[in-house]
Amino acid sequence: MSAQLFLDGVHRSFDGFKAINNLTLSVDKGDLRAVIGPNGAGKTTMMDIITGKTRPDGGEVLWNMSTDLTRLDEAAVANLGIGRKFQKPTVFETHSVEDNIRLALKAPRGVFATLFHRSDKAEEARVTALLDQIRLTHLRTEDAANLSHGQKQWLEIGMLLAQEPDLLLVDEPAAGMTDAETMETAELLKSIAGQRTVIVVEHDMDFVRALDCRVTVLHQGSVLAEGSLDHVSARDDVIEVYLGR
């Protein structure tokens, strides 16, 4: 097996409630993977565990089959090349849009590295290109606090791209976007996949269909079904989970 990310029998409960229950999941390098599931299925918690925010009670999360992510903290996981976009968009509100991108750019993260950092032409060009890509060039010097919800989503995607991670964890990127923007986001993620690995959590089925990729259905903290969207949505148990209750 050469999975880039491999969750092996992960458990996590909150006050006796099993949010993640024997979850096993493997994603290969360059894959695009959609994770769906009803509210409270444990999707966000899964991302919390991968990124070091939440410690699992048991199980392993292997990175490149060698590093156990559950022993690392958030910064260490991020520095391995794992980037994350949050369900609730979080950008640095008092920084300008371009500074948000600058802070995210792949570069040494140490105190003294940033203290003596000088920006150069290449860096400026990269910022400009990213702003173009997320279509926020006209808001370049605006404080991020003044952006709309959708713009913040885009900015966060831009920040994620600026980090140039090997694995992108994207939690509900389409929330707050127009239909057209949703499709654009899907295209963007598809174009990124291949060189990088992308895991997307989303409730919007049109978006998932547009991604046109392997889908994992999470339910009560473990994998219920996996396969193409058509395959999983034809399964009775999946339909029951989504509609039955």
Binding site: A78, G83, F92, D99, R102, V111, T114
Partner: peptide, 26 residues
């Protein structure tokens, strides 16, 4: 400096800064 921007980022959204790979405590 860029470090100063990181500090402000920590002030406004500490955990976001961590997920970007900055060691907030340092």
């Amino acid at each position: 400096s860029k470090a100063g921007k990181v500090l402000v980022a920590v002030r406004d959204a500490e955990s976001r800064t961590r997920f970007m790979g900055y060691r907030v405590e340092n």
